[in-house]
Amino acid sequence: MDGGRDPAAASLSPAAGRLVGLAVLCLAGLLWFGLIPAQIEFYDQGFMRPQTLPLICAGGIGICGALLVLFPGGQMGRSDPREVLRGAGVLALCSLAVWAMGYWGFLIVAPVLALILALGLGERRLFWLAIATLALPLAIWLVVEPLLGRALP
């Protein structure tokens, strides 16, 4: 976005650019032939029908994808495989946390999540670990539940 604020953004190799275009084209195909017919009831009356805008968008994405295959351009974010893996791990952990919160609640899951992330960031000092995992979630819980009278999971 905006001239690549990420200083490490790499200029794109044509092959990788074509790959992005191909992925975008596949997405459009999936939308047009799969998701849109499956998830939208088509109507044949009215001005803006339920399917009108989604089909326009899918078509637009498809055309842009095809053009990207022919004329690759733009930049790519950097992608060090180790970092991609770590990022995916963090997101997987978060999804697990959302699921767990439904069962055990915020007060139990949030400190565990914070503890794992803080340890993953290399923190070993007890003082900071205690603040991140105990003080902060507890403070949030105290403000929301007793003080504001709203419910957390």
Binding site: A97, V98, F106, L113, A114, A118, G122, W128, L136, L152
Partner: peptide, 13 residues
């Protein structure tokens, strides 16, 4: 190690 996990918890809540 405090700011980012903390911010994430804030986002969730």
């Amino acid at each position: 190690s405090l700011i980012f996990p903390g911010a994430l918890i804030f986002c969730i809540a």
